[in-house]
């Protein structure tokens, strides 16, 4: 029983070690802190909108009485943007949408990609060839073109934007997952599992998948930022279904017309996009340290 105890302790120790590695990377911690701001913003507005003093938590509240952007002031800490929208509250509302949208693209994209990547590597040969060619073809389609096409067919809704993004995003994961699984597949324990009589399915899902996930997870956290940039870019060029949907890219586009007279109206929402991208990148680097065995034992 003492050994069991040490086993538990060992597990704790590994966890503690992981934390230690992560927290010793100062910029990763900064990234995490910023990420948490976005995260809580999204959680609170999504699930407990009543705690926020917003009448319309999911749409912008324009003020056509005074539509011209106002500079930051006591009343409007970030100023306002056209048409008279309070930037601070608008950004708080926008973060929710952007955050969930990014997650909604990354998670299914990664899921699809990992499955395809793993199937391709494990079966190899023709299956691999065909799947990877398909991946390459999809990969070569520009997301903008696909998004516009899907928007044309399904109508310009948030869903069609998401579908378009997922469709262009999974190949990235498929390729990445394939390269990771190719490595894992060559490790001897896979051969040992075959010698033990495990079926291909079991080997794929019980050995290869768990060992390939950590690097994919790191990649996911890095990608959140890129996706948000992309969504914002789509919104910026007018790819939002409703005119008063709070979205950072859209906010930026609202301020665009006033760039000379009211630069804050564009710069501030733009900064929030970039900040998120930066934060998840730093955080992802920290995760990468955690799964790197050399980093774990170095000082």
């Amino acid at each position: 029983m003492s050994a069991q105890k040490t086993a538990k302790e060992d597990k704790h120790r590994e966890l503690k070690l992981s934390m230690e590695v992560f927290f010793s990377n100062k910029s990763a911690v900064a990234g995490l802190v910023i990420f948490l701001f976005y995260f809580f913003d999204a959680i609170i507005l999504q699930f407990f909108p009543q705690v926020m003093p917003f009448k319309h938590p999911y749409s912008l509240t324009p003020n056509y009485v005074n539509p011209i952007p106002l500079p930051p002031s006591k009343k409007f800490p970030f100023g306002t943007t056209y048409p008279g929208v309070n930037l601070l509250t608008a950004i708080i509302k926008s973060i929710r949408l952007d955050f969930w949208l990014s997650l909604a693209v990354v998670v299914p994209g990664a899921f699809l990609g990992v499955i395809i990547g793993i199937v391709a590597t494990y079966f190899g040969g023709l299956v691999d060839e065909v799947l990877m060619r398909i991946t390459d073809i999809v990969f070569s389609i520009p997301y903008l073109v696909l998004a516009i096409a899907i928007g044309y067919v399904l109508g310009r809704t948030l869903d069609s934007m998401m579908i378009a993004l997922i469709l262009v995003w999974w190949p990235l994961y498929a390729r990445y997952a394939r390269s990771v699984t190719l490595e894992v597949k060559e490790i001897t324990f896979i051969e040992a599992a075959r010698a033990a009589g495990s079926s291909k399915m079991k080997i794929m899902f019980r050995h290869i998948l768990p060992n390939s996930l950590p690097p994919v997870f790191v990649q996911m956290s890095l990608d959140l930022g890129t996706i948000m940039l992309t969504i914002s870019a789509l919104a910026f060029i007018g790819f939002l279904p409703a005119a008063n949907l709070p979205e950072l890219g859209y906010l930026t586009s609202l301020g665009y017309n006033y760039v000379e007279t009211a630069p804050w109206a564009m710069i501030i929402p733009g900064m929030f996009i970039v900040l998120f991208a930066l934060a998840v990148n730093l955080m992802g680097d920290g995760f990468r340290d955690v799964i790197d065995p050399r980093r774990r034992s170095a000082l």
């Binding site: 001897t188 324990f189 051969e191 040992a192 599992a193 010698a195 033990a196 009589g197 060992n211």
Partner: peptide, 17 residues
């Protein structure tokens, strides 16, 4: 497979971590 077994050289890579 039940009738045969194998032990590999490298004890570090032959067990799933």
């Amino acid at each position: 497979r039940r009738n045969v077994g194998i032990v590999f050289q490298d004890p570090y890579s032959s067990l799933d971590p």
